[in-house]
Design a protein around this nucleic acid. Structure first.
Length: 223
DNA sequence: GTCCAGGGCCTAC
DNA sequence: GTAGGCCATGGA
């Protein structure tokens, strides 16, 4: 739980390479952030953008409008993001929660303190830790650190956590070293995703990588 | 044709 | 508490 000195180094190295990540989550409203967070489960943002464009064109980027859509229509709209039946159902459950628990007042739901909001989100079927943290951080602007597949991959390659490490260990690594505030957590997460999509998924991986001195991508394959 | 992507649920042990 | 199967499209 002591501060890991590599985290500030990592942040600075990525910031130097990619610059400030302002307005990084591409969404026009907090609700759109939530929809994106659910749709991006186990897929790429490119696929999510298509599904969100469909929803926008259908006028469904609103909790009550979305809830009014027939199941099959929702499935068709979110189809490009994969696992479309599950995701249509998760969005419906989420909208239903807003309607039932908050009488449709989505802004009031997001206005809760971070811990209460996170606990409530985790109680909604279809929302796990990563999705809850994404909503808390990018829709409600509460301090929360998102541990996604990219983040885990990067810290494993840097040797900061063991192969079998849990999500909670990775979270502690960052929350212990970053200010407990939404802005630095948003910035760190955005830098990690920007870096991962630029290098960790690319081939060849390490040409021009700002972490090349300390990163060993072979480490993750030992798992 | 095969593998994998910014998860989460469910079941079995 | 955790490992494994499942969901399903689309890009590389």
């Amino acid at each position: 739980m002591s501060d890991c000195p590599t985290i500030p180094w990592l942040r600075d190295a990525l910031a130097a390479a990619y610059g400030p990540q302002t307005a990084w989550w591409p969404a026009e409203s907090p609700f759109e952030v939530c929809v994106g967070a659910i749709l991006v489960q186990n897929t790429t943002w490119r696929q999510v953008a298509r599904a969100i464009a469909n929803l926008k064109a259908a006028g469904a980027l609103d909790p009550s409008a979305m809830l009014a859509l027939p199941t099959e229509a929702m499935e068709d709209l979110v189809r490009p993001s994969g696992t479309f039946r599950q995701k249509a159902r998760r969005l419906a459950v989420f909208c239903c929660h807003i309607a039932m628990r908050w009488d449709g007042d989505f802004a009031a739901m997001l206005a809760q303190d971070g811990a209460t909001l996170r606990a409530e989100l985790l109680g909604i079927w279809g929302i796990g830790e990563e999705t809850a943290d994404a909503i808390a951080l990018f829709a409600a602007h509460r301090p929360a650190f998102i541990v996604d597949a990219y983040t885990t991959r990067i810290v494993r390659r840097l040797g900061l956590v063991a192969e079998g490490s849990t999500r909670h260990e990775v979270r502690r690594l960052f929350t212990g070293a970053l200010p407990h505030d939404a802005a630095p957590m948003r910035e760190m997460h955005a830098l990690l995703v920007t870096h991962a999509t630029a290098h960790c998924l690319a081939t060849p991986r390490c040409i021009g990588c700002p972490l090349a001195d300390r990163c060993d991508y072979r480490k993750e394959h030992a798992a």
